[in-house]
Amino acid sequence: MIHEETRWNETGKPAWQPLLQYTLELHLCSVRPAAAPFRYDWEEIGPGYCYGPAFGHWDLVHAIFDMMPTHPDHAKKQFLNYLSFQGENGVLPGTIMMRDGKAKWNMELSHPPVWPVALDQYVKRYADNDLLQTGYNALLRQIGWFESERKAPFGYYYMDIMTRKWESGVDDGIRFDQAPHHPTACVDATSHVYQLYTYAAQWAQQLGSDPEPFVQRSKELKLAIQQQLYDEQTGFFYDSWTMAQSGPKPGAQEGMWPLAVGAATPQQANRVIDEHLLNPERFFTKHPLATVAVSDPAFELRMWRGPVWNSMTYWAAMGCMHYNRIDAALQLLEGALDASAEQFARTGTIWEFYHPHGEAPDSLTRKPYTSFNTPCRDYLGHNPLLAMASLWQHLKFQS
C-alpha cells in the first residue's frame, strides 16, 4: 500500500491548499491492499461512498488524473487492475462493488469509456510502451463491444434509453425523461466512441500498425456529430431523439461532450463555450458548471438535475483547450476550485456533488426514492481536484 505522506506542492491559490492537501490524504487512505480479484493495491472511490467500498471505472479515471504526477506506479497499477476485468466480448464493467470481502460487478453494463485519455497522458509523461500496448489491445476489444452491443443508426447509445439503468453515469438525467426505448444515437455515447477511434488511430501509429481504418471511422463520426447532433438555432448539441422533435430542447450539460472530445467545429465549439458554458443563465453558476441549465424548467437541486460535479467541469475545461480557449478553461477551473475550497473551509470534507449557487451541499437531494438522499462526504470519484489545480496553474502561466 501507499504509506508516504507526500505533501501537495504549492499549486494554485493559497486558499486552495487545505483542500488540495486533504484531497491527497484522502487518496492515500483510500488505497486497499491487493486481494482477489485485484492483482495490485486498489483505490476505492472514497471512504464516504454510501454503498460501501467500490472500484469504479468513471471514478477511477479521475483518481488516476490526480495521482499520476506524484504516484505514477500506483496510477499504473490502477489501469492494470481495471483492464483485467475486461470480458471476452470486450466489455469493461462500470463499477466493481465489494460486499463482505467479495467483488461483484455487472458484465452487461459499462460506463463512459474515458480511460484512454488518462492512459495517453500517462504514456506521454512516462514513455511506457508496455502500458501503451496493453491499453491498445483493450481499446480495440472495447471498440468491438460498442460496435456489436451499442450501435445506433448513425452513432451509439447507452442503455439508459432502454432500461434506465444509468450506464451513462448520469442517473435520472433530464435527457431521459422523454427518451425512446429503442437504440438511437446519444450525444455522449457517440462522442465517447468517436474519442475511442481517435486514440485507436493515434496508438496504432505509435505502435507501428495501420491507423487508417480508425482514422476513417473517426472522420465519419465527427461529421455525424457536427451535422446531426448540433442545433444551429440554440448553438448546442443534443441527442438524436431531441433533434427529431420540435419545441424547446432540454438544457442538459451532456451536450458539451462533442466539445470535450474535440468533435465540434471551431464555430460550434465557440458557441457552446460563449453561449452556454460561460453564460450565467445557462451553466455558469457560482460553482460551475450546473448539470442542467438554470433557465431550464427541469432544473432542480437534485443529483444530475442541477447540482455540480467537479469532474464534468474538468472535462469541459479540457474541451476548451482543444479550441485554444484558455480563457474559458481558466474561468471554469478557478470557479470550481474557489467554490470547493469555500465549502471545504465550512465543512471539512469533499462532497460527491455541489450546490450550483455556492450554498451548503447537504441541502441538496440525491435520490429521494432511496435511503441515501444527500451527497456523499469524502467522495473522490468525481473530484479530480489536484489535476484541476495543476491544469489551472499550467494555463495561468500560458495566459
Rank of each mutant, 00 (worst) to 15 (best):
P361F: 06
L140P: 04
P288V: 08
I161G: 02
T184F: 07
Q267M: 07
Y314Q: 07
T198L: 15
E300R: 11
V61F: 02
G52T: 11
L277F: 08
F236G: 01
D100L: 10
A179I: 02
T370K: 08
T349P: 00
R305D: 02
W241E: 01
E43R: 05
G381Q: 13
D130L: 15
R217Y: 01
R141Q: 08
M243I: 10
Q227D: 12
D177M: 04
I143M: 01
D188L: 15
A127V: 10
W203Y: 04
L26Q: 10
T242C: 12
D378V: 09
H322Q: 12
V114E: 04
G144M: 05
G306S: 01
K222R: 15
K219I: 02
A328L: 10
F85Y: 06
A316E: 11
W58N: 03
A15I: 15
P153R: 14
A75L: 15
R32V: 02
W304N: 00
E5S: 06
F397G: 12
A15L: 13
W16S: 00
M98P: 00
F283A: 03
G94W: 02
S209F: 12
Y122F: 15
T365I: 09
Y230Q: 03
A224L: 13
S209Y: 12
P18E: 08
V170G: 00
